[in-house]
Design a protein around this nucleic acid. Structure first.
Length: 506
RNA sequence: GGCCCCGUCGUCUAGCCCGGUCCAGGACGCCAGGUUCUCAUCCUGGUAACAGGGGUUCAAAUCCCCUCGGGGUCACCA
């Protein structure tokens, strides 16, 4: 039978990396076997659910590349995919549960319940509803209902027996029924609560497996009880360990960045986050660590998921990110980097209307760039910079620190230009030679620039005597990419200009 | 506190099911060295763990029991 799994976030916040991992595992589980991956929005709590959160969750999922087959913005045979649009379905089942006697209305006030609970806690027992309203006679119940008394709907759970289920990750898990108590199914017939809606939807949407976080493990017996009362087939469950903060507690906002969107902003690549997340609790069984999503789709197996929680280690994320940056296509990287360069004001985009020849009759928007110090800068140059820095940055925004000299005026003094014990004359001579070489190059391409400069450098016993002053004059920095590449990417005009400028201060 | 879950280097993990090949392998981090005009990359080496205690066995990280430790959950939230 075709596997069907779901990711069921509630739109009460941005997509948390922990939730993202759950979504990812579901996605991979489905992909591996050609099954379906469904997105269901659990917005039964209308107070806390927000449209903007739903949108951001969808956006994050899209960014991560976790495409779902069915969902609120996709077609599907089991919709609607928002619980707030499925109220009639729940109502139907609530009626059925009451009719069959599996559930009953409870008229206890919240204050009453609170007192009862306090008593339990005092006695050192687990707080549990007394079952008081179970004993109300049919007649009295009808009267109260007629009178319009406030009530909630509770599930009848006897004290006898236990609920067992075979967890895909943990093996057999057993709960004593007497620990559960008569839990609330719905605030009223039109306001279902989580466990009810979830159990019904998992059945109605034909889920074969439910893979979710460990924090749901204690909800599982309740949902099984509902499914049994309604005569549903039992779903297979799997509870994944939580992502932990460095203090080993559940990773939450107080620990720092938790939203997927924040990691996007911080300059992590989606495939890197995915790669990192999957490694939190899963391994292929050998020493491989680098995976693309496509590889994971083939390689992933739920049997290899660990039971214990894993600490979110940002250093490792950065490392994984650096690996994926190295692998990324320079064109793509350049587009991504531009955002950060613009943000830091190193680059300014200029959009202009581009008119095609009248015969083609079209117009388009053309983007060109100017550097902070007002020079034209082409997208090809940015691609070159991306290529040159792919193995120098761990996250995208670092580009503004390591490549700023390409975009603004630089300053170099003698102490910077000097290599070891070189004199001012020697430095000046080296710069003169560089200017001549660059001026004489016929075709300005990377190979030619490198070759000509390297030939000269090799004439020195210590290449640094030529290369260091050159690079320092070009970049104004102690640390940077190599002089050939920088000279080439800067362009002949700017490179020579910078060299002449360096000479002036000598 | 009740219930449930978990426990291999600081962290992510392999090994555990099917005891010996494990005085425990890989990765991140950190430290040292090499390559390089510099930095980064890259390469080499080092650092560091079977939570503890009992069993079972010729042999235990691996099987059993107990203890300890950590986490999750106990809503008319999801």
């Amino acid at each position: 039978m075709k596997k069907r799994v779901r990711f069921a976030p509630s739109p009460t916040g941005f997509l948390h990396v922990g939730s993202a991992k759950i979504a990812l595992i579901n996605y991979l589980f489905a992909s591996k076997s050609g099954g379906d991956f469904v997105l269901r929005i659990e917005d039964t709590d209308i107070e806390r659910s927000k449209q903007e959160y739903e949108e951001s969750i969808l956006e994050s999922l899209d960014w991560l590349g976790l495409e779902y087959d069915e969902g609120p913005d996709k077609k599907g045979n089991f919709g609607p995919y928002r619980q707030s649009k499925r109220l009639e379905i729940y109502e139907k089942y609530i009626k059925k549960l009451i009719e069959t006697g599996a559930a009953y209305p409870c008229f206890c006030s919240e204050e009453e319940l609170k007192k009862e609970k306090e008593k339990c806690v005092e006695k050192g027992e687990a707080p549990k509803y007394s079952g008081k309203c179970r004993k109300i006679s049919d007649q009295k119940r009808r009267e109260k209902l007629k009178k319009g008394d406030d009530y909630v709907i509770r599930m009848k759970v006897d004290d006898e027996g236990e609920i067992k289920f075979e967890d895909m990750i943990r093996g057999e898990v057993v709960f004593d029924k007497k620990e559960i108590g008569d839990f609330v199914l719905a605030k009223n017939k039109k306001k279902p609560l989580y466990n009810l809606a979830c159990a019904i939807d998992d059945h109605e949407m034909k889920m074969s497996h439910v893979i979710r976080g460990e924090d749901h493990i204690s909800n599982t017996p309740k949902q099984i009880l509902i499914q049994k009362a309604l005569g549903f087939d039992q779903v297979k469950y799997g509870h994944l360990p939580l992502i932990l903060a460095s203090d080993k507690s559940k990773l939450s906002k107080r620990h720092g960045a938790v939203a997927v969107s924040e990691y996007k902003k911080q300059g992590f690549l989606p495939e890197a986050l995915v790669n990192f997340l999957v490694l939190l609790g899963w391994s292929p069984g050998d020493d491989r660590e680098f995976f693309t999503i496509e590889e994971l789709k083939k390689e992933f197996s739920i049997d290899r998921c660990k039971k214990s929680g894993a600490v979110f280690n940002k250093k490792k994320l950065e490392y994984i990110n650096s690996l994926h940056i190295k692998e990324a296509r320079p064109e793509r990287l350049a587009k991504l980097l531009v955002t950060y360069l613009i943000q830091e004001d190193l680059l300014n985009p200029k959009q202009s209307l581009e008119e095609y020849p009248p015969a083609m009759g079209a117009k388009g928007l053309k983007t060109s760039y100017k550097t902070k110090d007002g020079r034209d800068f082409s997208f090809d140059q940015i691609i070159g910079i991306a290529k040159e820095h792919q193995d120098r940055i761990k996250t995208l925004p670092e580009i503004t620190e390591v490549a700023d000299y390409f975009f603004e005026t630089i300053e170099a003094d003698f102490s910077l230009l000097q290599w070891k014990d070189m004199t001012e004359d020697e430095v000046a001579d080296c710069i003169d030679k560089s200017i001549n070489i660059l001026s004489d190059i016929k075709t300005w391409d990377k190979k030619q620039v490198s070759k000509s400069l390297l030939e000269k450098a090799n004439e020195y016993g210590d290449r640094g005597r030529f290369l260091w002053p050159l690079r320092a004059a070009l970049t104004g920095r102690k640390n940077s990419a190599g002089p050939f590449e920088v000279a080439y990417l800067l362009g002949r005009g700017e490179a020579i200009k910078r060299l002449k400028q360096a000479k002036e201060i000598l």
